[in-house]
């Protein structure tokens, strides 16, 4: 069973995303900011990270840059999931190593489509 780490400072989003991902047969865990996510990745590298951009302590882009420098940090597929819905942010995310990008609001179809796109399902 593949493992997806859901990183978002909104508990509602974390709950909804986990629900969708578990329906898609993923094992899930969560973190509410980039720093907590990084610590969790150092303990157990997930197969995928569903990542918000704007979060306290450490934001999504800084998390991604730090993750890609970790040993095995290239492994997880990182899918941004954010309200930053402009081309500039998207390009910045791709350059930093994001594999896909979801613009909020999202639904199950979009999550499925994006996870399929990066070969996770």
């Amino acid at each position: 069973m593949k493992h997806c780490l859901v990183v978002d400072d909104s508990s509602v989003i974390r709950k909804v995303a986990r629900c969708i991902l578990e329906d898609m047969s993923f094992r899930t865990s969560e973190a509410e900011n980039g720093q907590e996510a990084l610590t969790k990745c150092q303990t157990e590298m997930p197969d995928a990270v569903l990542l918000d951009w704007n979060m306290p302590v450490m934001d999504g882009i800084d998390f991604l840059l730090a993750l890609r420098k970790e040993s095995n940090g290239e492994t997880p597929k990182v899918i941004f999931c954010t309200t930053e819905n402009d081309a500039e942010h998207i390009t910045r995310a791709i350059t930093a190593g994001a594999n896909e990008y979801i613009m909020k609001p999202f639904d199950k179809d979009i999550i499925e489509a994006k996870f399929q796109e990066v070969g996770l399902i």
Partner: peptide, 10 residues
């Protein structure tokens, strides 16, 4: 069928 969408507030 489209699934219900989730806003940024869920």
């Amino acid at each position: 069928p489209a699934s219900p969408a989730v806003s940024s507030l869920g």
